[in-house]
């Protein structure tokens, strides 16, 4: 499995550390209450198919990436720098 880092180019997945769903990019407001915070911290979809998740390019450019991939076919559609994203998860 190779992840196309927007800065470094295609790299082996062992250079990356997996973090989790890109839901983590949608941080609720501090006063949003227990419900949204519970969702944000604990509730995750478990899709069979396309997913967006966060990977850290530890052995390369040390950037966080949002990777668009498929959990069934293992196809990787693309990756974007979290630093360059407008808004949160998609």
């Amino acid at each position: 499995m190779r992840i196309p880092c927007p800065l470094c180019g295609p790299r082996d997945r062992r250079e990356f550390t997996y973090y989790g769903s890109d839901d983590y990019l949608n941080r609720p407001a501090p006063d949003a209450g227990a419900g949204p915070w519970d969702d944000h911290l604990h509730l995750r979809a478990n899709p069979a198919g396309e997913t967006h998740d966060l990977w850290y390019h530890e052995a390369g450019c040390a950037q966080w990436l949002r990777v668009h991939r498929n959990t069934v076919s293992h196809e990787i559609y693309g990756a974007a720098l979290v630093a360059g994203l407008k808004g949160g998860a998609q």
Binding site: C8, R14, A59, G60, C61
Partner: peptide, 10 residues
């Protein structure tokens, strides 16, 4: 010039 792992080293 690249950032790359050399074995397990940055």
């Amino acid at each position: 010039a690249v950032r790359a792992p050399l074995g397990h080293m940055s």
